[in-house]
């Protein structure tokens, strides 16, 4: 069990950038020294809608990357899809506006101590935290290959500077509007053996994470996936975000994905039991 992220703090932070990229918004938020505690895989929880909003719950977003500049100090970047009212409100904020944010939350991607071959798989905005991760892995001397996928090209997030931190990048869209046509999961089995992959890092829709886990089942490739369950609090107090996870002894229990995740061992998640009633 991972436990509480001891670095988590709540603050009023200023938006220092908001740029439209395809169907997403690249939002830069000044958070000061807290950037040093933000690791690839961690997420933030943001209060949306302003004072007296009828939206009472925070919205969760993965930290895409951290930067530091003399202008605004430490800042984090989010890649936000305007989905419903809360995320659309966030995408509509202008530079200089303030938000109530809690960060960093949850677990981070585990970084190997030796140079290994890593495959990074991102679906939709799930690619956001993978570029920061790629940089860290490169610094460790890892070989880093990346697969990105989405239903359509406008939902592929692949910044130019990010591409420099990977050895290869392949893009898949279901409608063929960008890169190769088809599903991101199609080439994985082959790539794993060709590139002698040791570890897969993935982030994206639950169906994609499940499919990757199935492809890897029984093998010895490590699968670290960042899950996305509906979260009411993001800090471990509501028990809404649970996933069935098996421990070393084979015992399955419902773990909170905001505290024991979002980065979890794909092989330990009982994917077929997600959304089912667990019998203890």
């Amino acid at each position: 069990m991972a436990g509480i992220n001891r670095s988590a703090a709540q603050l009023l932070a200023t938006i220092v950038g908001n740029k439209k990229v395809g169907q997403y918004h690249q939002i830069l938020i000044s958070v000061g020294d807290l950037v040093a505690q933000c690791k690839p895989g961690n997420f933030v929880a943001i209060s949306v809608g302003g004072l007296n909003s009828k939206m009472v719950l925070r919205r969760a977003f993965a930290i895409s990357r951290t930067t530091t500049s003399p202008q605004y100090g430490g800042a984090i970047e989010l890649i936000v899809a305007p989905f419903g009212n809360g995320s659309s409100w966030l995408c509509g904020l202008a530079e200089g506006e303030q938000i109530d944010i809690t960060l960093p939350l949850g677990t981070a991607f585990g970084i190997p101590t030796t140079s290994v071959n890593a495959l990074l798989v991102g679906g939709g905005y799930g690619s956001a935290p993978l570029f920061g991760l790629a940089e860290v892995l490169k610094e460790r001397g890892c070989r880093v290959d990346m697969l990105l996928g989405a239903s359509t090209g406008a939902k592929i997030y692949a910044p130019l500077e990010g591409k420099r931190s990977v050895n290869s990048l392949r893009i898949f869209t279901e409608d063929g509007s960008m890169g190769e046509t088809g599903r991101i999961t199609a080439p994985i089995a082959q790539l794993v053996s060709e590139l002698q992959i040791d570890v897969i890092y993935s982030c994206g829709p639950m169906a994609m994470l499940k499919a990757i886990s199935e492809i890897l089942a029984g093998g010895d490739v490590v699968h670290q996936c960042a899950v996305e369950e509906a979260m009411a609090c993001g800090i471990g107090i509501c028990m809404t975000c649970v996933l069935p996870v098996k421990d070393e002894t084979g015992k399955i229990s419902n773990l909170r994905s905001c505290i024991d995740g979002p980065v979890m061992d794909g092989a330990a998640i009982e994917w077929d039991l997600v959304g089912k009633t667990l019998v203890l």
Binding site: L57, E229, A232, C238, V242, G275, T277, L278
Partner: peptide, 20 residues
């Protein structure tokens, strides 16, 4: 107790439903 199946929450106007 393992509790109920997910989804366990739905935000509603000025509130939420839970079934933990």
């Amino acid at each position: 107790r393992a509790g109920r199946a997910t989804p366990r929450m739905a935000e509603t106007p000025s509130g939420m439903l839970n079934s933990i």
